[in-house]
Amino acid sequence: MIHFIAGVVSSSNYWFIVLRSTAPILLVTLGAVITAQAGIMNMALEGSMLWAALVGVIVSAATGSVWLGLLAGIAASVMVALVLGFFALKLDANAVLSGVALNLVATGGTVFVLFALTGDKGISSSLPSKVLPTLTIPLIKDIPWIGKVVSGQNIIVYIAAISVVAIDFILRRFTVGRRIKATGENLDAAKAAGIDPIKIKFFTLVISGILAGFAGCFLSMGYTSNFTSGIAAGRGYVANAAQVVAGGTAVGSIFAALLFGLTDAMATYLQNIGMMPELIQALPYAVTILGFVVVTWVRDRRENERKRKLFASAATKSATKKEKLHGV
């Protein structure tokens, strides 16, 4: 068993599949991270993905252009995020409940629309939709092991990678990142500094909508070549769990999404050696919860440790730190 796992992990094909199945999760996790940093939980990511997947397929089939499809899909996804923002930020509705409601609207609405357009409920196979291209990267493709993993992936996989950098930039390099952080960490402080928290939250919602749009379009126009009902398959929810594991950073999102992607891909392989498929499929979700719990636990412990240390120094009144900070 261990031998088998080691064999799988060392194969480039495994990592190819990992990257592929991690990409959509990574995209939505980034979306969940950036909204969470601004202090709003985007529970509607699942719905965003569903609408993006459907609208992408419909528009690409209607126009014959995969790029227009992608654009329309992203627009649909952003729309969902904006509606969430409207209810949660303008009408003061509970953000989580509104998100859940929007997901329901999406689950039913996508099938409803698909049926109204094609007469089919389950799959868009009657629509001649297009597929996003895969890319072969010139030099990298020739590197022995890495080339097989990194090159030849769907364009969205690379967009996911670029998104990590982009979100990292937004959060750490751009001024808006500080405003996002201020809004999420101390809303009153942000307001007192003249920042409009609602604007910031809307901004993050739009970003998360774009990211979920990419992810949704990937699912129906790359990952597979059709929209199928419920195609998001809970990835939006997984993202909200992974967001916690990510610890609020773009780089953390990679690890969090990989946690799911690695086990998800491994599950396919473990099935091959006769592990019970149903049990194996529970694994990625179980691992995500585990990661979720471990991360919060470690964070709490670290916090307590910090407090204890501070007390030790305060009690002994050596207070070197205090002096240093008071002094100057």
Binding site: L97, L104, V105, A106, T107, G108, G109, V111, F112, K121
Partner: peptide, 11 residues
């Protein structure tokens, strides 16, 4: 499926 839609609206 349109009742799922209605359900979401009610919430």
């Amino acid at each position: 499926e349109f009742i799922t839609l209605l359900q979401g609206m009610i919430i």
